[in-house]
């Protein structure tokens, strides 16, 4: 009798496993990242990448994002060339990767009204890794989770040298803004 009970419990636990370990994932391949390093009264230094991939694990708030560096588009062709060849060296370092977590994330806590979450994690690009800490606004509508936020980085943090000749025209701090519309 005891053994039968044990089997029953085992069966029950085994039957539950797929439900417990099933990670609810939300993903996008068309996330948007803009960065701007403009200096007032000089030409705009800005780029946008509309093909950023991101995956959110809705069970624990883990967020992974990957931006292919060549996907950053500038208005001025020469600027894009300099970004690829001299600054970000995109042939050598083709991607930027973020791995982090939305602290205290819970799918149930979301609504159509954006809610603040602290996003912490590590950003790796140009062969260097830096800790990122910012506040993200997260909302949900139907099957889509929207994550919006921005943070500041310094080119120097990623060993990106800006030559003296142009350093006046490029801000020391680069403003990065991201928008992810993730679908289940």
């Amino acid at each position: 009798m005891k053994k039968r009970n044990l089997y029953f419990i085992l069966f029950f636990v085994a039957a539950m496993v797929p439900f417990v370990s099933h990670a609810q994932k939300f993903a996008t391949k068309t996330g948007d990242i803009k960065f701007e390093a403009s200096v007032p009264s000089f030409e705009e230094v800005a780029a946008e990448n509309k093909n950023v991939s991101a995956i959110l694990n809705a069970n624990n708030g883990e967020l992974a994002a990957l931006a292919l560096m060549n996907g950053f588009r500038f208005k001025v062709a020469l600027m894009e060339e300099h970004f690829n060849e001299s600054y970000a060296e995109t042939a050598k370092y083709p991607k930027a990767v973020f791995k982090g977590k939305l602290e205290g994330f819970s799918l149930k806590a979301l609504s159509e009204k954006p809610k603040q979450f602290t996003l912490t994690g590590e950003l790796t690009l140009h062969g260097k890794t830096k800790k990122i800490n910012d506040v993200a606004m997260v909302s949900v509508k139907g099957n889509t989770i929207t994550i919006i936020g921005n943070f500041m980085v310094k080119p120097a943090d990623f060993d990106i040298d800006v030559p003296k000749v142009v350093s006046k025209k490029i801000a020391d701090e680069v403003q990065v803004a991201y928008t992810f519309l993730l679908e289940e």
Partner: peptide, 16 residues
């Protein structure tokens, strides 16, 4: 299109 690299998250080659 223009090849912009390999996306490991999805295991895909990306072109823009």
């Amino acid at each position: 299109g223009r090849c912009i690299g390999f996306d490991e998250l999805f295991g895909e080659v990306k072109l823009d």
